[in-house]
Simulated assay, not measured.
Amino acid sequence: MANGEWFAQLYQKSYRSLVLTAYALLRDMGEAEDVTQEAFAVAYGRRARVARAESPEAWLRTVVVNLSRRRWRRRATLDRIMRKEAEEPAPEVFGEHLDLHAAIRRLGDEYQAAVVLHYLADLPVDEVASILDIPVGTVKSRLSRARTALAAQLRTEEVQDA
């Protein structure tokens, strides 16, 4: 396989999942895409190391999580200084599942991250636990509570729309 071909395949295979990981932490699609691009730029600069990694996607995910956390801390600090809340992502970002994404955004931060990483980024529970740095049982509990809350929210919206 050509030198750049494996990297292009890694990008194709991993991009969406990594954006969702960043989105789970940042709750801003534009920033999530920026962080993911930055992670791929870092990986490209260190492609020899990434190529030797047991799981290049896991290596990238670690970079995405670290960059997202750094960006979130910077944004939180700036928001405190400016005394204004961070903006919600534009509804058009979510397309056909607008109601579901709106309901997910109404969950608490800890529940949002678990739901996005597990159900949207399709990561196993143990990997979600590793990314969020919490026990597997806590992830399972948050997912269960989030499902209950989402079901209630979506049922209420369905009744209101009828």
Rank of each mutant, 00 (worst) to 15 (best):
P56Q: 00
L100D: 02
P135T: 03
D161Q: 14
G95N: 02
E157M: 06
A58R: 14
W59Q: 00
L67N: 09
A58P: 04
A102I: 05
A2Y: 09
D161A: 14
A162M: 10
L154F: 02
L98F: 02
N3V: 10
L117S: 08
L78S: 14
T138V: 12
A114E: 03
S14P: 07
F7N: 07
V93F: 13
E110Q: 09
T62P: 02
V93Q: 11
A58N: 05
R155D: 11
R52T: 12
V125M: 09
A129W: 14
T156W: 03
A32H: 01
L26V: 02
G30A: 10
G4A: 06
D28A: 10
I81T: 10
E38Y: 00
V65G: 01
T138H: 10
A43T: 04
M82Q: 14
I81P: 07
S14Q: 02
G45V: 00
E54S: 15
I134E: 02
T21M: 03
V125H: 05
E33C: 07
A149T: 09
V139H: 03
E57R: 15
E110V: 11
D34V: 09
R27N: 13
E85S: 09
L120T: 06
K140M: 15
I81C: 12
R74S: 08
F94V: 11
W59R: 01
R73A: 10
A103W: 02
D34H: 13
V115P: 07
R80E: 13
R73V: 05
E96R: 14
E158A: 14
R27S: 06
G137A: 14
R147Y: 01
T21L: 15
E38P: 00
E87W: 01
Q112M: 09
M29K: 14
V125P: 05
V115G: 05
K13A: 11
R47Y: 05
R69L: 14
V35L: 00
A41F: 05
L117N: 07
G108N: 12
E96C: 04
D133E: 15
E127N: 14
K84S: 11
A146L: 06
A48L: 12
A146F: 04
V35P: 05
E87T: 03
E38F: 00
T156H: 08
L67I: 06
D161N: 08
H101N: 08
A51N: 06
I134H: 01
L20V: 01
P124Y: 01
A162R: 13
R105G: 11
R70D: 07
T138Y: 04
N66R: 15
V139R: 03
A103T: 06
E158R: 12
A58V: 13
L154P: 04
G4M: 10
R69V: 10
Q153D: 13
L107D: 02
A22V: 04
A43Q: 02
V19E: 01
R47V: 03
A149I: 03
V116W: 06
S17W: 02
R75C: 04
A48H: 08
A32C: 08
Y15G: 04
V116D: 05
L150T: 10
E33S: 03
V128S: 13
R145K: 15
W59P: 00
L67S: 11
L10E: 08
R105V: 06
W59V: 05
A51C: 12
R47Q: 12
E54L: 15
E87Y: 01
T156N: 08
E127Q: 15
